[in-house]
Write a protein that binds this DNA or RNA. Structure first.
Length: 950
RNA sequence: GCCCAGGUGGUGGAAUUGGUAGACACGCAGGACUUAAAAUCCUGUGGCUGAAUAAGCCGUACGGGUUCGAUUCCCGUCCUAGGCACCA
């Protein structure tokens, strides 16, 4: 614990452990340690796969495992863990065989950056951080089966990450079968007929060869050709290069031209890289979303990222040339509005398309456009630039001549890298045409008089030949039919999704199990896995810019062939860890088919939405590949997924006058407009209920030792604001401190009580008093001042049963819809009501404790024992709701007049509408409101409401 | 710019299918117990008018609409957070 908190903490623990001995007083520190030790020694959370004869259904509750950072956990991290633990425990009470594991995503940049700075091996830093995390997690009382812990950086784990890489390498995507197949079946086709007729996901510039050609190739040539088809392949590609990190990054690791980790600038660079053929699965990744229970928001993020668009590809002939330009468009219906064609600056056709007179100008422009960094291009999206090539293409629909331009708004990587310019229907084309004075031809009815015709994008077509009068969908259909009949092109689906870069020029990652022979990559034997990360003297790149692994001494395959020097990215290990938990110690395979089939899909996956386009996409991809190859029986790994919100910090702010060392209490500052104030963040541990502990503040900030503090009514009030929990704002709250003061049960209850799981909400430590009070109240309801048990066997009264069953109903219903916050409040309501009745019924409290135990397992175990049980509460069946206890003989109806609640009336069940009306009208209050006016209508909804219209 | 989610007291939030808006909790105010404090318990607490624990008016971002009845459904506007962003 930080020293400044130490004092505060001592002060609190003193008051809490005052006059009573431990047996009498609710003392979370003691009983939580006791039960955590009990669970561990009795292995209460170790789970086994069950025999087929067992009737217990399985349930797999999973948390996104953490990257163990040096800072340790703050109270925001366990939010999702607590929720999934509540579900895991609830399912266990409900008779499920529950798998609830935890592990660590242990490869990653921070440990490596630290290694570069200090020379400390990242394995050591990582191991230390994992220890800290585990200690913190264990204090919260999770029901994790630690015997199944996985750590991605351990050779026994990454052996299988490498093995999966090998499966991807040895597979190709058969588009006829719509699935991955072993590469052997592709080689068989090549031997038979070459690659002419193969329908496979492959690289663009794959040469065409015959069976004879294939037979004549040597080993290295064959290896290079097969790379064009493998699901993981080595290719020259434009990648996101981050000079500060010395590594390439995947698209999801780059945000607005900066690296997501560290915020360093990222450049586009052409490099030879290991890639994953993610695009082969674009359609299935999209389609699979329809079969899983994820939030629509998250599915939308993935859908947008995959970016499917339906369109058409068609060829424009180039004048005085044999070339054809193929364009991709989603609006082929606007073809009659084409007034120019533009190609991307990266296009290899430019030199052939450029007229000699324009050559210099075009070369200059292309050079300039290529030199612009990704960041520059993104920064001024609105700047229009381009150059005329001096040549023309022919619009196949009209036979018209249209000029060909090069323009940097055209992306080489999307579609065909050629755009048909329709300035009357597309904003970018419009901007371009305006800037260069190209003609704009309106082709949609009602746009002729608009200053900017692109404001109206749909409507009846005009000036469009045989498409005139048609609407968008019909016109597209007719135009596509036309180009297909004429052989000009065809309907085409396009995806934004790109293949994922898989190599990283870093040390702290899984070595890629590949060596090079005659320049071609070859896989290691399965028997030589794992390929262990070699020791190196420094963790930096070599002087010549090679990745750190190039520093490894005599690290060669069979003593002669160089190993691959890049390592796998952070997402490799996390793309399959959920499978390893099922069979964590298997030495023979990554997961046995039997166990994978037993546990099947993850029933509940809890984690942050920030992984939407990274981890959650890559995991689905690997799972699909393993499914295709027959290792798994389910295509989608995560059946239900919940994104917990972020816990934000609640920062405390004080105000200091700029002209002097004078701090002024918040409200006085607000009233004072004459002076200018500086706003300062203060550590939230120095503030309680927005009141600053001035003496503690002076100790924390010695430079203000002699500053003046202007108090308001003897108190110094702070302002507050919600922002990200971060050391920088001094608003980080450590769960260890909260547990030391209130206990893990209170922490668990409070995190759930804060609000709906999916919401982001601020952490306000003062609110935890409420749940802490609730737990103490519960304790005192069961345990007397001498430590004696206060509850006894008795027949429960009608009222007690009603309270209990109301609670059972709410807890079950709310847990089934993952509404954790309302469950906590229903515990409070029930306890308040039982206490009002002075209930001391043993059965009622026993049932209450079982209902509570998923949220507050320690106190539930302790009181369960003190109520006379020798067995743990963990496997007690969850209470069953019985409607008979809630039955009422009537209902207290609210009576509203013209929709406003004015009175109420108790009516027996089964009362007729007529009788209800008569009785309601007889009410004095109703008579006063009627005031002689006629009743127009009476609405009677049984057990809901009576509404009188006058 | 586009897509998506949301906007309810001083604060976190509740109201599951359109049916008593503000449950539960924090905070605040007052009281009891105590030498005192802590802890505990009790009472009050959306705003306005009012002496009132009489009565009424207003009130779920704002403006309309549908309905006997709208926090909930529909249309428009504003704001906040997230995602995407020359994707043809």
């Amino acid at each position: 614990m930080q020293p400044r908190l130490q004092k505060l903490h001592e002060c609190f623990t003193q008051t809490h452990q005052s006059e009573y001995s431990k047996d009498m007083e609710y003392s979370p520190a003691d009983l939580e340690a006791k039960w955590q030790a009990y669970w561990q020694t009795h292995k209460k959370y170790e789970v086994r796969e069950l025999e087929e004869s067992s009737t217990k259904p399985k349930y797999y509750a999973l948390d996104m495992f953490p990257y163990p950072s040096g800072a340790g956990l703050h109270v925001g991290h366990p939010l999702g863990y607590i929720a999934s633990d509540v579900v895991a425990r609830y399912k266990r009470h409900s008779g499920y065989n529950v798998l609830h594991p935890m592990g660590f995503d242990a490869f990653g940049l921070p440990a490596e950056q630290y290694a570069i700075d200090t020379g400390q091996h990242p394995a050591i830093t990582t191991a230390q951080n994992i220890e800290t995390y585990k200690k913190q997690l264990k204090k919260i009382g999770f029901s994790y089966d630690w015997a199944r812990e996985v750590i991605t950086a351990e050779p026994s784990y990454y052996k299988w990450t490498q093995w999966i890489f090998m499966q991807l390498f040895q597979a190709w995507y058969n588009q006829d079968a719509q699935k991955a197949e072993p590469i052997a079946s592709l080689i068989a086709i090549f031997e038979q007929e070459g690659n002419k007729n193969v329908r496979a996901a492959h690289n663009e510039q794959t040469p065409v060869f015959s069976a004879q050609d294939w037979a004549s190739f040597d080993e290295a040539q064959k290896a290079m050709l097969l790379l064009n088809y493998r699901l993981t392949y080595l290719a020259e590609a434009v990648v996101n290069w981050c000079p500060a990190l010395g590594s390439v990054l995947a698209n999801d690791e780059v945000k607005d031209g900066f690296s997501e980790r560290g915020g360093h600038p990222v450049e586009r660079k052409k490099m030879k890289q290991w890639m994953m053929r993610l695009t082969a699965y674009a359609e299935r990744l999209l389609e699979g979303l329809n079969h899983i229970d994820w939030s629509d928001a998250l599915k939308d993020i993935q859908r947008n990222w995959i970016g499917k668009s339906l369109g058409a590809e068609l060829a424009f002939k180039v004048e005085h040339n044999n070339l054809e330009l193929t364009v991709f468009t989603t609006r082929i219906d606007t073809i009659f509005g084409v007034t120019f064609i533009s190609v991307a600056p990266e296009s290899e056709l430019i030199s052939q398309l450029t007229a000699p007179a324009q050559a210099q100008q075009v070369a200059d422009y292309v050079q300039k456009a290529k030199n612009r960094s990704e960041r520059e291009r993104q920064a001024d999206v609105k700047t229009v630039s381009g150059a005329f090539l001096g040549t023309y293409a022919i619009n196949p629909f009209t036979g018209e001549q249209v000029p060909i331009w090069v323009a940097d708004y055209v992306l080489s990587g999307y579609g065909t890298g050629v755009v048909m310019g329709v300035p009357a229907a597309d904003e970018r084309d419009h901007r371009f045409a305006k800037h260069f004075g190209l003609p704009i031809r309106c082709i949609i009815e009602g746009t002729e008089d608009l200053a900017n015709p692109t404001e109206k994008k749909t409507g009846c077509l005009i000036n469009s030949g045989f498409l005139n009068g048609l609407h968008q969908t019909e016109a597209i259909q007719k135009a596509v039919d036309f180009i297909q009949k004429k052989g000009l092109g065809q309907g085409k689906i396009n995806y934004k999704l790109r293949d994922a870069v898989f190599g990283r020029q870093r040390y702290w990652g899984e070595p890629i199990p590949v060596y090079y022979k005659n320049g071609a990559p070859f896989l290691l034997d399965e028997a030589s896995l794992p390929l262990v990360l070699p020791e190196i003297d420094q963790f930096k790149p070599t002087e010549s810019g090679e990745p750190p692994l190039a520093r490894a001494k005599s690290w060669e395959h069979q003593g002669q062939y160089a190993y691959e020097h890049t390592t796998m990215p952070g997402w490799a290990g996390s793309s399959w860890y959920f499978l390893r938990y099922m069979d964590a110690h298997n030495q023979n395979t990554f997961v046995s088919k039997k166990k994978a089939d037993y546990w099947g899909q993850v029933d509940l996956y809890m984690g942050g939405a920030e992984h939407a386009t990274g981890h959650l996409l890559y995991s689905r991809f690997w799972n699909l590949v393993l499914f295709d190859l027959g290792y798994l029986s389910h295509a989608e790994p995560f059946k239900k997924l919940i994104n917990q919100g972020m816990i934000q910090g609640r920062s405390s702010l004080v105000y200091k006058r700029r002209d002097a060392d004078i701090f002024v209490s918040y409200k006085l500052r607000q009233a004072d407009t004459a002076n200018d104030y500086q706003e300062l963040h203060v550590d939230v541990s120095l503030v309680s209920n927005d009141l600053l502990n001035v003496e503690a503040f002076k100790k924390w900030r010695p430079e203000y030792e002699s500053a003046e503090f202007v108090l308001d009514n003897g108190k110094f009030e702070c302002n507050w604001q919600v922002e990200k929990m971060s050391k920088r704002w001094y608003n980080v709250v450590n769960p260890d401190d909260v547990i030391a003061r209130y206990g893990a049960d209170a922490l668990r209850l409070y995190e759930m009580f804060l609000g709906p799981l999916e919401y982001s909400k601020p952490w306000d430590t003062s609110g935890i008093d409420g749940v802490s009070r609730f737990l103490r109240k519960l304790w005192r309801s069961c345990i007397g001042r001498e430590g004696e048990c206060l509850v006894a066997e008795a027949e429960a009264t009608e009222k007690e049963n009603k309270i209990l069953h109301t609670l059972i109903k709410r807890v079950r219903e709310d847990l089934d819809r993952f509404s954790f916050n309302t469950v906590v409040s229903s515990y409070m309501i029930a306890l308040n009501e039982l206490n009002a009745l002075e209930c001391k019924n043993k059965m009622v409290f026993e049932q209450f404790l079982i209902l509570l135990s998923p949220f507050a397992p320690h106190i539930a175990e302790e009181l369960w024992q003190r109520l006379g049980h020798s067995e743990s509460i963990l496997d007690e069946p969850f209470p069953i709701f019985e409607a008979k206890y809630l039955a009422e003989s009537g209902f207290e109806y609210p009576v509203s007049i013209n929709g406003k609640m004015r009175a109420s009336i108790w009516l027996a069940n089964g009362v007729s509408a007529e009788e209800a009306q008569i009785k309601t009208l007889a009410l004095e209050k109703v008579q006063a409101w009627l005031d002689g006016k006629a009743l127009k209508k009476c609405i009677f909804v049984p057990n809901k409401i009576i509404n009188l219209v006058i």
